[in-house]
Nucleic acid binder design. Structure first.
Lengths: 336, 336
DNA sequence: TTGAAAGCGCTAACAG
DNA sequence: CTGTTAGCGCTTTCAA
């Protein structure tokens, strides 16, 4: 371990002078400056951030709790966020709650112990209010992502409700008469209390239409694909919307296996594989999300801020999954 | 900020007693123990890890530098690693080098400043030896992942060479006579000096065969799909192996667009989308990787350890990309 | 069984 | 322009 004392003694100055020189603070003679920098370089000195943090009582680090490590979407946003943090001299600690309030609390404890400046988390239940309070007591800002569960917290969500409404409207416009929404079944959360709620958008779009519909609540993890298959077989929809990438993949698997190429399909969480497959999808804006996260880190406000990020519906092949049958060429895109 | 002093004064004991009580170290009377714990709970006290680290001069944190945030493979291993760390009371800081030595050095500096116990990184060039040395000087262990560039470092790699040899052998066995390997073109690294080297395995398998072959070096980022298309058109292979997920997707896009369903195809980095697409792929073992990473964190050795993780070749549909034409049923798998 | 004091590495305030 | 001193929150002697 190389400390500033080592640098100071090699440069024959006091530690505080060395510190000031290295951080270019205050007046330092050219000669001292050079000596200090030479000494630091020779020794390979890098300031101990731990000590700096203890002194300044502030870390340039945020905590990020991912609820579902199976969901590619979470990872896809990570590198943009990291890049933004880097540009602002910050770093990020990542933790995983595995959709489970107990692990979530553990994550909180560890991030609070690290005295991160802000904790971003996707709530897995509504009963971890206590640890959120502890975080606040310890001077940590807490922001909930993607699910608006705790009223008094700053919140960033994607506009899944509107996304789902648009998807539904599109399927109706394409002539679908029997729509199935594969929405999320939260393990520790009452779906009806979660905002945004895709089902709400779904029902809004269906309002006034004579189309039949059905909503299946499907778990994020440890799900049974047979349940999904049974629902499709029983209801025999002509249009399906899935709320996540994973449910989307399961649905696609079923549809292609059964060669159900007449069923129209839209899924949430666009990615490059869906693009390749020419599957229509709802695309979140990583750029806007990253911006909003940056705002949350920087801005302080007294009242909880509720931020809603609009989404794109990316239409491909008229929402038919015809890639499984034959390639086609047309692609268009509806900007929201 | 709630400190141990707050807890101590509320429990009417000294800070050192509170500290011992909370950590269950030494002799503490039942009464004191209860008082301290009650005070801590009431205040929502969580020990400041920053201060603990400064005192103990050791962090329970590792650093992880991801070289290519476009590569899903890196993310897919993250949650397993995180889970393992959690079970051992550790955490992880993630950084991104973007396949670029300058960013890589920045990542190193930041992780060294945080005094992580170990830095895992995928080298982007061979000329960052200096900062690696600085890390070591500061008591940090450095492990290179997936590319064996620095001789004197502990190393964990996937056995891409063997994986590529097997893939090649399989394609030859299936009757391919013109094989194209889309290998990686490293921006800041001489491909010939990178181990493992897929091309080596490729050539070994071809040795003695009369099949024609060609190797294309394709960049990981900022690549031009047209180059790939041109190579395929010019050489007109009947079998293709791609070294990464991203190159695989580009190749698949081209092949399906041109309806080249007679070309056999195997790609590195298996995932659920490839499984759905019934594309044959080489699958790395996340479980073994996580184990080895754990070993690296725990074990100290004097000589550099070089660890090679075997891979699976997962065969689907005889390496034909027939999902683009019609679903088929047979799947088998060759364990290595 | 508990408390007082020192110190981890760094920096801010103050003195020179 | 530079050095001395104190202290961030915690733990660890060493005494009591």
């Amino acid at each position: 371990m190389i400390t500033i004392k080592d640098v100071a003694s090699r440069a024959k100055v006091s530690p505080s002078t060395a510190s000031r020189a290295l951080r270019r603070i205050g007046y330092i003679s050219k000669e001292t400056h050079d000596n200090v920098f030479r000494a630091a370089a020779e020794l390979g000195y890098i300031a101990n951030a731990t000590a700096q943090q203890l002194k300044s009582n502030s870390t340039r680090t945020i905590g990020f709790i991912i609820s579902d490590s199976n969901n590619e979407y979470y990872f896809s946003i990570l590198s943009d966020i990291q890049k933004m943090l880097n540009e602002n001299g910050m770093s990020m600690i990542i933790a995983f709650s595995s959709e489970n309030p107990v692990d979530e609390e553990t994550c909180f404890r560890s991030l609070i112990a690290s005295r991160v400046s802000t904790i971003f988390f996707t709530p897995t239940s509504s009963r971890n209010g206590a640890i959120v309070e502890v975080a606040k007591k310890n001077g940590i800002k807490v922001v909930q992502l993607f699910r608006d569960i705790y009223e008094d917290l700053d919140t960033i969500i994607n506009d899944d409700e509107s996304g789902c409404r648009q998807a539904t409207e599109k399927l109706l416009a394409l002539g679908c008469r029997r729509l199935l929404l594969v929405d999320v079944d939260y393990l520790h959360l009452d779906a009806a209390s979660v905002r945004p709620d895709r089902s709400t958008g779904f029902l809004q779009a269906l309002n006034g239409s004579s189309a039949r519909y059905r909503i299946l609540r499907f778990p994020l993890i440890d799900y049974d694909p047979a349940v999904l298959a049974a629902a499709i077989e029983e209801f025999s929809p002509d249009g399906i919307i899935t709320a996540t990438n994973v449910a989307g993949l399961e649905t696609l698997s079923y549809l292609t296996e059964k060669n159900c190429t007449h069923i129209r399909f839209i899924t949430f969480d666009d990615n490059r594989w869906l693009e390749f497959l020419r599957v229509s999808a709802i695309r979140q804006s990583t750029r806007v999300l990253t911006e909003k996260i940056k705002d949350e880190i920087c801005i302080q406000s007294d009242v909880p801020r509720k931020i809603v990020i609009p989404q794109d519906l990316v239409l491909r092949g008229n929402c038919l999954i015809d890639r499984a049958v034959t390639p086609s060429e047309d692609t268009d895109r509806a900007d929201v």
